[in-house]
Design a protein around this nucleic acid. Structure first.
Lengths: 222, 222
DNA sequence: CGGCGTTCGGTGAGTTTGTCACACAAATGT
DNA sequence: ACATTTGTGTGACAAACTCACCGAACGCCG
């Protein structure tokens, strides 16, 4: 589905952009809408465009041969999916996939126009490299966590991160396991232990935080 | 230590580069020599330049608060240290460091000249994005391995990778542990088990591969 | 409503990996 | 020759992962 671009309002990182760049974007960029659950890119299905997210979030995760998964990072509104552009075109044999976690609205910039933008706009270059930075530090963080941190701490952190203001989480143990790249049973046992301590209550598909402070205390035991 | 640039011969990826880019590189780039063991960048010591490696290898590794480490990737001659450029300038609070694993000779390109090159040369842009690709797929691979693969397999793979043609490895159990982001004892026990199977012999600081075929068979049990 | 397949969660048993504490051996320095 | 540093071996225990299986909750449909 195509509509006219509305990118100006959504990308503060591209604020001071010059007029010719604006014109190029207006002329070339197209916004698309994707339903929640759409697979945006994946093995055997490389991305052809740079994606600028206007609305929604995209989850990027890695698949193992044995069928296990781990969430690598999320792309939020106002951010871009740069890794796909640079990465996926050069190497096809990667095993990550991008999934629309909500309904998504995004601006597509074709490869050649991306290249042209990199050439003509200093602001665009800064925007792109900053996006890279963010992704790469995210990846470093993931590595640090799976390599060095205890599972109970990681579960506590993820619960807080996913709950935000709310104290009611709607997700299954399996989904939480994928977030952390571990097995479902490990999560079930951790959650049971937290429940035993009255930190939360469990019911099918729902985790109700009862004592976020205690959870935070554990999470901060970095 | 400064010498005149010799970049032309070393970067096939920059082969078809235009004359004005050549001139810019000749005028601005400077080569430096670093002794083995030098810390090229690290926490509290961000990189100021893009590095193009002419000779030697650079090891990039992550430090944990608890003092454990893991090797993320290596940069070889003919490659560039792009992550440092984009990444380290935007975020100072990262915890990776780059170490000269051998004596190293490299071309430094200051930040502003890097930006200019990105603007004027399509080849340079391709070179940079390909470098990004490689690094990022390396990181994906690391994540996949620490999250999903068995330790004995990873040790076997790493032994073969580090040995190359040679069958004698000069490294300590601790160094191998850092390669894989695990504890020294785990490595010691794995190696002992391999020795028991007559796959290798151990002496202080030396691992002698006796049956690389058997090791490879295990390593290929992906 | 009741039946039925599917998804979700709980749990025991066994294995692998990580942690801690320490002992000893080999290299190094003075 | 002796002390110090560095590398390795090991036992005991804790944490994490795997495998196998169970029953409960839910969605759907007749």
């Amino acid at each position: 589905m195509l509509t006219q671009p509305t990118w100006r309002a959504h990308f503060p990182g591209l604020g001071g952009i010059s007029d010719d760049v604006s014109r190029l974007l207006d002329r070339k960029a197209r916004t698309v809408k994707l339903d929640k659950g759409s697979i945006i890119f994946g093995p055997g299905n490389p991305a052809e465009n740079l994606l600028l997210l206007v609305k929604g979030t995209v989850r990027v995760q890695q698949l193992s041969e044995a069928g296990r998964e781990i969430v690598l990072y999320r792309v939020h509104a106002g951010e871009s999916c740069v890794l796909t552009t640079a990465c996926l075109l050069a190497f096809e044999d990667y095993s990550a996939e991008g999934i629309a976690e909500t309904d998504v609205e995004a601006i597509l910039i074709p490869r050649d126009d991306f290249d042209e933008l990199m050439s003509i706009s200093k602001e665009f270059r800064a925007f792109v490299f900053e996006a890279y930075s963010k992704r790469i530090t995210d990846l470093f963080l993931v590595i640090e966590e799976i390599a060095f941190k205890r599972m109970d701490i990681r579960v506590a952190q993820k619960l807080l991160e996913l709950s935000g203001e709310d104290s009611t989480l709607h997700l299954t143990h399996q989904q939480l396991a994928v977030e952390l790249g571990t097995a479902r049973e490990v999560i079930s046992r951790q959650l049971k232990e937290f429940e035993r301590r009255n930190w939360l209550t469990l019911s099918r598909g729902v985790i109700e935080l009862r004592n976020p402070v205690a959870i935070k205390r554990l999470a901060d035991t970095a």
